[in-house]
């Protein structure tokens, strides 16, 4: 947070990339991108490029890792060593990636109807191919779509996005530069149907009032993100029913 040569992040009410404080970057989602996977999706969120594959439910092996009551979720988030505009990254998950994997797993433990598959495992792999801030949120948003394409039953299709703080201004969906110099970062994942918070992290400083505003901003952004998720899921089928109509 902060830094020596902090750039002016907001000029005349606009951000460095020309966005308004409450504006999302462009988001595009494609489904069924990995032939071998049981479910998959690819997301481009600003300059982030993330691919996600889902396997299962399949027998949890070794057996002691399974749970006789419900399915277990295994999740791995990882950043490719070539994903950053900066240095070459270390190969394999680091401490940050392990933490993100854990909190992401917990999101989907809530969303998936695990009781239907005792003794099974559901594997979620999130690979960040190019990163520009907000990859955990984009990864969760993408994984939710990948899970839905696998046919695994879920209560909802969750989405995630972060809000940051620059001076006294709250900004939605920070890119990398904003993330580097902001005064706070609050990634949140929400179940759009219930409005419940499934992931919450925070780092920096905010007031109680600001937190309420942040949640409201994220819920509002969720209407847009949710529509992009749903459209991506429905697209392959609706294109076909359109053709039938003719």
């Amino acid at each position: 947070m902060g830094g020596e040569n902090k750039p002016e992040l907001i000029v005349n009410g606009k951000r460095l990339d020309g966005r308004m404080p409450d504006e999302l970057r462009p988001i595009r989602i494609m489904t069924n991108v990995i032939k071998n996977a049981d479910g998959s999706a690819y997301i481009e969120w600003g300059d982030n490029k993330i691919i996600c594959g889902v396997y299962g439910p399949k027998e949890a092996l070794p057996k002691h890792t399974g749970n006789p009551e419900r399915a277990v979720v295994k999740c791995r988030y990882q950043m490719a060593p070539f994903s950053s505009l900066e240095d070459h990254g270390r190969t394999g998950p680091n401490r940050r990636a392990h933490e993100i994997s854990k909190v992401t797993k917990e999101v989907f433990e809530n969303a998936i109807l695990l009781e239907q598959f005792p003794g099974n495992a559901i594997e979620i792999y999130i690979e960040v191919l190019q990163s520009d801030g907000g990859t955990r949120a984009a990864g969760i948003t993408c994984a939710a779509v990948a899970l839905a394409t696998s046919g695994i039953p879920m209560r909802d299709v969750p989405f995630a996005v972060s809000v940051g703080k620059v001076g006294n201004t709250l900004i939605l969906d920070m890119n990398k530069i904003e993330d580097n110099y902001s005064d706070a970062d609050v990634p949140i994942c929400i179940s759009p149907r219930t409005g419940e918070i499934l992931l919450l992290q925070m780092d920096g400083n905010i007031t109680r009032e600001e937190f309420s505003t942040i949640v409201a901003m994220i819920k509002k952004a969720g209407e847009k993100i949710g529509k992009i998720q749903r459209d991506a899921l429905k697209a392959p089928y609706e294109a076909i029913s359109e053709r039938y109509k003719r």
Binding site: K35, D47, K49, A80, P81, F82, S83, L85, L129, Q130
Partner: peptide, 20 residues
């Protein structure tokens, strides 16, 4: 992958690899 200095993607049938 524009963030990498060089990148390429290759499909051979359904095999798909990415190099950065």
């Amino acid at each position: 992958i524009p963030h990498a200095e060089g990148s390429a993607e290759c499909f051979i049938g359904n095999t798909r690899v990415l190099v950065g």
